[in-house]
């Protein structure tokens, strides 16, 4: 239900939500939400993988029970 749930594109690439920032200083700060591919150089790579696996486990669990 959360806005930032990861998803897979057609080629199977996982896309994760990204907070994008721009502008200078507090007044001109621009904050947005976009999507970026999950690649091994992502600083939160391990955490996202863990999260995605946990979600997958939840899905399977729900299907079995």
């Amino acid at each position: 239900m959360s806005v930032g749930e990861p998803w897979q594109d057609k080629s199977g690439q996982w896309m994760v939500p990204t907070r994008v920032e721009g502008g200078d200083g507090d007044d001109a700060r621009v904050v947005g939400m976009g999507w970026a591919p999950l690649t091994p150089d992502h600083p939160l790579y391990e955490q996202w993988l863990q999260y995605i696996r946990a979600g997958w486990a939840r899905e399977v669990d729900a299907r079995i029970s």
């Binding site: 994008v20 920032e21 721009g22 502008g23 947005g32 939400m33 999507w35 600083p43």
Partner: peptide, 21 residues
């Protein structure tokens, strides 16, 4: 946009769904 990631994988503003400026 500034943030994480290398240029090749970095999000551009055209990929952004919503923004608060």
């Amino acid at each position: 946009p500034r943030g994480w990631g290398k240029k090749a994988t970095m999000a551009t503003w055209d990929d952004v769904d919503g923004v608060v400026s």
